[in-house]
Amino acid sequence: MAEIEIKNIAKSFGNYQALHNINLTIHDQEFMVLLGASGCGKSTLLRIIAGLETATSGEVWIGGRRIDHLSPKDRGIAMVFQNYAVFPHLTVFENIGFGLRMQKLPNAEVERRVHRTAELMHIEQLLKRYSGELSGGQRQRVAVARALAMEPDVILMDEPLSNLDALLRMEMRAELKGVLAESKTTAIYVTHDQVEAMSMADRISVMHQGRIAQNSSPVEVYRNPSEKFVAGFIGNPPMNFLPATEVSKGQWSVAGCQFSGPEAHSGAIDFAIRPEDLSPADTGIAAIAKVVEPLGAHLLVTCDVEGHLFRAVLDSDLALRAGDTIHLAPQQDRIRWFDQNTTQAICLS
């Protein structure tokens, strides 16, 4: 059992507060992704769990044991770094076996585990090579194998795929997910890539300015963003926002169209819809197409709606040119509402 509990972790560098009272529980064998733009504190949080950084206050517990005062080697963790950190003076075999040798395991056991993890990561044929003779993808495999060979309670990954090219990243993404699920290890994975996060995570914690903005399943994060930041950060292209004005109780006017929304709300609110939840119709939000980008499967149309940027992902068969005016009808059950002042989502109940 390796449940991770992060209790009230805060971290400041001088006057700069990098993390504000983070509370997070990661269940045993769960794949948790910390997602956020650079500088949001996600790597700092991971490094605090690993013991490479000391929290200003708060506690970290792994498997019912408080570990924030222990040195990294005593925490039962293994870490995969963004730049791989494969030791250049050792062969792949010795790299994977490094941690096992440090534990003074007998030779036969080291060999058994190295071969097993190397097989798992498909690098058996590279065991005699040095890191200088490996490609980026191969080094990444060595780094993951080295972490897995430790058979840790928790595996921590800091943007492990961001140095790989796009195709390789997609391949490694699927492979990592499979290997980690099989190893039954609790994993925390830091990334700024939302596709990676969506595709791999059991649960996503979206981080913003040193706090957790939303912590839920990938689909939930995508469909029901808890605040405007999450809605704008997740999804490519991101969610559209338009200001709404109340017409009557529960009825809101958005760019000349009426939608039923929150019944009673003080203050200004925004109407929000994902670009792919729009379809061309006879009536709907009137939009002037500014840029039309055929993407093969879809047509990405960047429009202007009463001076606001508005994007739609439409069927690629649609004949549309820049300057045309189209009417876009949103799918009713996908409409979301946000408070303009607090930026929080407004629940319709």
Binding site: S71, K73, I77, A78, M79, Q82, N83, H89
Partner: peptide, 27 residues
């Protein structure tokens, strides 16, 4: 020498000293 090499050594069971002698010194 990237600091990550040392950090990796720490997470793999090294103290500051053994990380130095086993990873940094040979390099």
């Amino acid at each position: 020498i990237p600091i990550e090499l040392e950090e990796a050594a720490w997470t793999l069971g090294c103290t500051r000293l053994t990380a130095f002698t086993k990873v940094i010194l040979p390099l």
